[in-house]
Design a protein around this nucleic acid. Structure first.
Length: 700
DNA sequence: CTTCTCTGACTTTTT
DNA sequence: GTCAGAGAAG
């Protein structure tokens, strides 16, 4: 029975990929070729037919979303609970290993995990200390991150340098950074991978233990692995039973260290590797495949693929160039409205993609004008909000008092009168005794050379942290509640921040403390659930892995797509091309490419040339529209609406959802200045007056 | 220590 | 044009 269910409705290549279960296998899975299906079926096949235990298959993905999806789908198949399984992101898998084994590297198992924010804070602190121009921290952070992803240690990096250049300084910062992390008993994201590799390289016994634990390895989105991740896979796959699934054409994270050559060189590293191409596409029409295929075919370094579909030609791909970005946006909005009114599409069927976030603004304006519901999938995650990070920092410090970065963050928030001068005294004391900041504060409390007012303040702080860490909390929620209470954090803060904290607490309900701390660190949880009944706006990067019936790729212009910074670098140009390809292949039925002749970028208006990628598009698959005014004659504004009168996203009678009060009906709506003030009746709660932009409302 | 004002940077961002 | 962050003033 199992075999039938496992293999039915699969094409021959998919079947082959599932059945080939001995030795290394690379599955080149084109966009929309049923990649996830292959992985989940393969997992099921290995456990059902090949008698692998579910927890003996080391399965790695890049996102938590992908991991969860996979767990769910496999659980449905295999019928057993996947919570014990080793299916997860690279980072969470490494975290799991390191929590057990990190003592071998001289860290303590209760290490903190630093996110990008913490990482930047630490780097800035180091730059300040080494008297290097602090504004460089972002560039320094990303260089260090790429070094770690390439498994280059500070010592190695320093030994390559000439002793004078900027890289010399960078090397010193890197060295100090690693040192500080260790003092803090903290790991950044890159450490999770790098240190796992080091752990295995330095401890052959441990390595073989894990090699035996995992006789089979499955890798999703293989094109996105960086060198360190690849090395980890190489180490673990002693039995060479590794199946890597990916698409070199969809590698768009080079700037984060992803290395396409991993996919291009797989055959060299695993000489007897089997390669299977999945070229049947189940998503898009032939026209869309022809257009996107022609564009990607121009990339010199790629594994040739030719996607095909049984779907038929479908609609022609539309290309439309307009005068300005406002016109471009209006064109998109009107097209969406038209298609929606014809009744074949819901608003949730549309996606508008752009290269840079900045482009979203004009589009949002146009959608509001047409009263089209939309949501922007943005990068700012819940856990990155200041109040959330602050509360979490208390938690991290209580769990690991060596965590100096968290301590610096919260020692004066909420304000308790401990300013820069006090902190530098603490830093000094810590350095003198080579102990953590927290330990230094405790030393200072015993000494007599500080004023009693400072003593009171810092002793208060120490008491709070010690009380929190010595209390035995049952769940993470209990601990967070205790933190909020003891620190007085929620006394006079804005309503929105308070709501966020309450949300944080409720999300921690019934979760063990350490699990919660890991989850917060490793799960971005942007919580951008594909909101029902609204158009999705996002960058081309965030669109990867998604699909929509109707897709607009906007700003198809030189300078935007390809982005101007990539223009004089051949490998970055290739990546821009892939980015365009990823965008186009999100579309199922209708693909529309748009461009503007003039665009306001930052403060100046620029003349924009059409993107070079357009030259590669077969014109017979397209509807080519130029709505461009050749002469600069005075154009009678087609829409005579003064911007003030712009229709608000809210109308009397529409339904809204508030994070705390739930669903309500808008009773009144008025524009005051730049604010939209709403009167909303929440059943069971009553009538509330709200300012739309602060109330965190969702239109439903 | 907090608040205001000025400067300058300004892709993308799975963890 | 906008925002965050640094520095100056209160």
């Amino acid at each position: 029975m199992a075999k039938d269910v496992l293999l039915e409705e699969l094409n021959p290549q998919q079947k082959e990929a599932i059945l080939y279960s001995k030795g290394p296998l690379l599955v080149l899975a084109g966009a929309g070729s049923g990649k996830t299906r292959v992985i989940t079926h393969k997992f099921a096949y290995l456990t059902k037919k090949k008698k692998y235990h579910p927890s003996s298959i080391f399965t790695v993905t890049f996102t938590n979303k992908a991991a969860n999806e996979m767990k769910e789908r496999i659980a449905r198949f295999v019928g057993s609970d996947m919570r014990q399984s080793w299916i997860g992101t690279f980072h969470s898998q490494c975290n799991k290993i390191l929590r057990r084994e990190i003592k071998a590297l001289g860290y303590k198992p209760d290490f903190s995990i630093y996110d990008d924010d913490d990482q930047c804070n630490l780097i800035r602190h180091i730059l300040k200390e080494l008297k290097i121009y602090e504004a460089l921290y972002k560039g320094v952070a990303s260089r260090i991150s790429i070094l770690k992803a390439s498994l280059i240690s500070p010592e190695e990096f320093l030994s390559q340098g000439d002793g004078f250049s900027f890289d010399e300084k960078l090397g010193r910062v890197y060295l100090k950074y690693q040192d500080e992390l260790k003092r803090c008993n903290a790991l950044d994201f890159d450490d999770l991978i790098m240190l796992t590799v080091r752990l295995f390289e330095e401890n052959p016994k441990l390595l073989s233990k894990y090699q035996e634990m995992f006789p089979y390895i499955l890798v999703d989105e293989f094109q996105d692995t960086n060198h360190a991740q690849y090395r980890l896979l190489q180490l673990m796959a002693r039995h060479k039973n590794i199946c890597a699934v990916g698409d070199d054409d969809q590698s768009i994270y080079k700037f984060r260290g992803a290395d396409v050559s991993n996919i291009l060189n797989f055959e060299k590293d695993f000489p007897d590797a089997m390669i299977i191409k999945l070229e049947q596409n189940y998503r898009s029409t032939q026209n869309i495949l022809d257009v996107s295929g022609a564009v990607i075919a121009k990339n010199p370094q790629r594994k040739p693929k030719k996607l095909w579909t049984e779907k038929g030609c479908g609609e022609k791909v539309i290309y439309c160039r307009l005068n300005t970005e406002e016109e471009e946006a209006r064109y998109i909005a009107r097209n969406i409205k038209d298609l929606y009114l014809k009744g074949n599409y819901e608003y949730s069927h549309f996606a508008i993609l752009y290269r840079i976030n900045l482009q979203a603004r004009a589009i949002e304006d146009a959608l509001r004008e047409e009263v089209i519901p939309y949501h922007v999938i943005s990068g700012v995650s819940f856990y990155h909000r200041r109040e959330i990070k602050d509360i979490i920092s208390y938690m991290k410090l209580a769990l690991n008092t060596d965590d100096n970065v968290s301590l610096r963050r919260i020692i004066n928030s909420p304000p308790r009168g401990i300013g820069a001068s006090t902190l530098s005294k603490i830093e000094h004391e810590a350095k003198k005794n080579s102990v953590s900041l927290f330990a230094a504060i405790k030393l200072m409390l015993k000494s007599n050379n500080i004023t009693s007012s400072i003593k009171d303040k810092i002793s208060e702080f120490v008491k709070i942290i010690e009380k929190i860490s010595s209390t035995h909390h049952k769940t993470a929620a209990d601990m967070l509640k205790d933190i909020v209470e003891k620190t007085g954090y929620i006394e006079d803060i804005e309503e929105e921040r308070l709501q966020n904290i309450l949300e944080l607490v409720s999300s921690a309900e019934n979760i063990p403390i350490k699990d919660f701390a890991d989850r917060v660190a490793l799960v971005s949880t942007t919580d951008d659930e594909p909101k029902k009944a609204s158009v999705s706006l996002m960058t081309l990067h965030s669109a990867k892995g998604l699909e929509f019936p109707v897709v607009f790729v906007t700003g198809v212009e030189e300078g935007i797509l390809p982005y101007f910074k990539a223009i004089d670098d051949a490998s970055e140009m290739q990546e821009e091309r892939r980015l365009f390809y990823v965008g186009m292949t999100r579309a199922k039925d209708i693909l529309c490419l748009t461009a503007a002749k003039k665009r306001r970028l930052y403060s100046k208006v620029q003349e924009q040339e059409p993107s070079r990628f357009l030259q590669d598009i077969p014109k017979e698959c397209c509807n080519w529209i130029e709505k461009v005014q050749q002469k600069t004659e005075v154009i009678p504004e087609p829409a005579k609406l003064p911007p003030k009168k712009r229709a608000s996203a809210y109308t009397v009678g529409c339904r809204v959802k508030h994070p705390a009060w739930g669903i309500g009906v808008v009773r009144d709506c008025c524009e005051e200045g730049s604010n939209t003030k709403l009167t909303v009746n929440f059943p069971g709660i009553g009538i509330k007056r709200l300012v739309a932009k602060y109330a965190n409302l969702e239109r439903i």
